[in-house]
Amino acid sequence: MSVNVIYKTSATATGGRDGSAKSDDGSVDVKLVVPKEMGGPGGVGANPEKLFAAGYSACFLGAMKAVSGKESVKVPDDATVTATIGFGPRDAGGYGITADLQIAMPGVDRADAERLVHAAHEVCPYSNATRGNVDVGLTVV
Rank of each mutant, 00 (worst) to 15 (best):
F87V: 15
V108Y: 03
V67W: 13
S2R: 13
P35V: 10
A119G: 01
S72N: 15
V33D: 07
E71F: 05
A54G: 10
V117I: 06
S68D: 04
T130Q: 03
A21C: 13
G93Q: 02
V73C: 03
K74W: 04
E49M: 04
K8Q: 13
Y126M: 01
A92K: 08
R110Q: 15
A113S: 09
T130S: 08
D78R: 03
S72M: 09
K74S: 15
G107W: 02
G39W: 09
M1N: 05
N133C: 10
A63V: 04
R17M: 07
D25C: 11
K22E: 06
A119S: 11
T12L: 05
C59Q: 02
L32G: 07
Y126F: 14
M105Y: 01
L101W: 06
E37Q: 14
G45N: 08
S68V: 03
M105F: 01
A79T: 07
S27N: 05
L61N: 09
F87L: 15
H121W: 00
S2I: 14
F87S: 13
P106R: 00
K36R: 14
T82Y: 06
R115V: 05
S68P: 03
A119K: 11
N128H: 09
N47P: 10
G15R: 00
A54Q: 08
I97L: 12
S2D: 12
T82I: 14
A79M: 09
C124V: 05
S2F: 13
K65S: 10
R131L: 01
G39V: 14
N47H: 11
S23F: 11
Y126K: 01
G137S: 05
V5M: 05
K70W: 04
V33T: 15
M64D: 02
V123D: 02
D112C: 05
G88Q: 04
G93W: 00
L101I: 10
T80C: 14
R115I: 03
A92G: 00
R110C: 13
P41G: 12
D91N: 12
T84N: 14
V134M: 10
F87D: 14
L101D: 02
P76T: 12
D29E: 15
L32V: 11
L61H: 10
K36T: 10
A63R: 06
Y95K: 11
V34M: 14
K50Y: 11
N4C: 07
V140E: 09
G39Q: 04
T80R: 12
A58V: 09
Y7P: 06
I85L: 09
D29V: 12
L138I: 12
S72R: 15
V117E: 05
N47T: 08
G16K: 00
G55D: 07
D100K: 15
P48N: 07
V34D: 01
I97D: 02
Y126C: 04
T98Y: 02
L32F: 13
T9A: 12
P48A: 08
A63S: 11
G42Y: 10
A54V: 14
A129T: 11
Y7W: 10
V108G: 05
G132D: 06
R131F: 07
A104E: 14
